[in-house]
Design a protein around this nucleic acid. Structure first.
Lengths: 340, 340
DNA sequence: GACTGGCACTCGCCGATTCAGAGTGCCAAG
DNA sequence: CTTGGCACTCTGAATCGGCGAGTGCCAGTC
């Protein structure tokens, strides 16, 4: 049985009302607020059908209806109208992001901005190393047997690692290695480097090979294996709004999940080109987040994507508004990145 | 009126019981659990006095007593016996901290360790730049008018900033500037650099002065003015343990406070030499944290202090245990730092 | 003078009960 | 297919009473 237009209207009205009021919505108040041209009784019949189909449910017999995860899903996919950002929001975004001096700065500002605009928990992934290219590698001698390896990526990320060398190395040897390393790896996409690194070792004169091998292993470890994705988080306090009625009374599992970087990455990573992804309640793979929804998207200069960002909130969230905000912020950040 | 020994014993017993059970403690259960050699009636009299003096109070007439902030304070100052760490805890600390490759890594591991051991919110400050010395300054040309400035401090911290130069600069000029900058600033304590930086500009040949001035201003801004202290946070999920009975029902204000880096720094910064500081409830200057306690201390290689760390939890916390853990972790981290 | 046992009293908590209101499902009629 | 009407259900708030933990005080004892 397919749902006719009015039933879909009813579902939309239910979602909108419930999101706004946080209370189960009944047939009567529905017809009052949304001028559907029919009587409460008719709406009740529709609601019965919607319930049978699994889009809404009653928390208790004889209290209004509440959308199910499936209901939200349908709403997001087919019913929600795109909401344009208010000029105030646009201005807020611009004001917030200009004057960032640093990649760190950009990410921090972005995540706070996102949390503030959506009033939810925001997550921003640092530009992924795997999607970056090497702009420069720097070797800084710390002592005769120690070198600080600094890698600067074209996305602005800077990673450093202390390297313990197998034996003492002269300063000019370091300089020389720096330039060979830069010659071979500079400009290369990080994902492509492993074979190059190997070649680098093989091409090194024997007397220096142990040192170079050591360097190479750290390089690989840092940049590739330890797939060093970082994320920033903000707005956890927003979880405690709304009396915790969402999240069935305890924030514990949600907060726990948010402490795991791996989980955060899973939430906002796995970005496909330029879509906005919405995961609703049970669609989340993480058990602790079954009562939450995640809206995420990718960002990057131009059309390329270098990282993900998104927000997390209760399933009862303003999807159209959130989606619009997430998209807008992602676009602004992308533009900002393109300028560098 | 001074409190005699038994009254203090009673206070201690009350604190210990309340911390353990989370329930107001009455005279009867007190004498049962702690073998004070007196009758409940006597204890009642003592409790009346303690209440009069403001160390304990009754949530409602005729329910047991609960320590006040002042009661906890007295307990911490005079009554608590130092609790030795269990061997298991010691092992946990060591296991957790070995294998850290990075300053970032050390800090992250530490903060998680601390959260896990104390089952509370943990905060760790990165080694303060103000207390560090310059180990090396690196200038990496990004384009002809842009340079990446990387500063490596002796504490292992690495800060970078993109510098927009007033005009194009040749590669060898950059190299030259790098070495002069390093000559002048290398090894200097960061707090002492501002005049040196000024001198640096003055000593620069006129043709290069604008570039150097630009560099200098970024340097000052990054390292000094923007007093770039960073902190790591973990264990917020622990706030949601114990049904939120502490924190009068809502975590919101606490979570909000924890989102502000400035506040976190205030909590664990301001370190005096090698003391452990305990701030109980109202003693906190931050309004949002009036129902929380903070245990903090400084850490650093040897006896010097380069940063602070600590935990935050409900006033009803196991002070002796927490203090012991915080101290132990600080010491281990200090040792770890000393090795570099 | 300090401690103790006894006793009356207070008051919050818990379960049961009641009541009003919102909302439903169903039915018969338009 | 829609609508008005109606009986029914169930929750949430308010009320009530008994229970019990815990207290404060007093008189007696060491």
């Amino acid at each position: 049985m397919s749902l006719d237009d009015r039933k879909l209207d009813v579902l939309r009205a239910i979602v909108e009302d419930y999101v706004a009021t946080q209370e189960p919505v009944g047939s009567k108040s529905l017809v009052e607020r949304h001028h559907l041209g029919v009587s409460p009784a008719t709406v009740r019949n529709d609601m019965a059908v919607l319930e049978e189909e699994g889009y809404i449910r009653q928390p208790h017999t004889s209290a209004g209806r509440v959308p199910t995860d499936a209901g939200y899903r349908l709403f997001v996919d087919r019913l929600s109208r795109v909401k344009a950002l208010s000029p105030a929001e646009r201005r807020a975004i611009e004001r917030f992001l200009v004057g960032a001096v640093d990649l760190d700065d950009v990410v921090h500002r972005t995540v706070r901005l996102l949390a503030q605009l959506t009033r939810q928990v925001a997550v921003v992934q640092y530009p992924s190393l795997a999607r970056s290219s090497v702009r420069h590698l720097e070797l800084v001698p710390i002592s005769t047997t120690r070198v600080m390896l600094v890698m600067i990526a074209d996305t602005g990320r800077v990673e450093q690692r202390l390297v313990e060398l197998p034996g003492p190395v002269a300063a000019d040897a370091v300089t020389e290695m720096r330039s060979t390393v830069n010659d071979k790896l500079g400009g290369q996409r990080l994902a492509d480097t492993p074979p190059l690194v190997q070649a680098l070792v093989d091409d090194t004169p024997v007397d220096r090979r142990p040192t170079m091998a050591c360097l190479a292993s750290v390089l690989l470890e840092t940049l590739v294996e330890r797939s060093d994705e970082r994320v920033a988080l903000a707005g956890t306090a927003n979880l405690a709004r709304g009396g915790m009625l969402d999240f069935q009374g305890t924030l514990r599992p949600v907060l726990e999940a948010l402490e795991e970087e791996v989980i955060l990455l899973k939430l906002i990573g796995e970005v496909e080109p330029s879509t906005t992804r919405v995961r609703i309640g049970d669609e989340n793979e993480i058990d602790n987040l079954r009562s939450a929804s995640v809206v995420s998207t990718g960002y990057g200069p131009g059309t390329t994507i270098v990282g993900g960002l998104g927000v997390l909130g209760p399933t009862r969230m303003d999807y159209p508004g959130t989606i619009a905000t997430v998209r807008a912020v992602a676009r602004y950040v992308g533009d900002l990145l393109a300028q560098n």
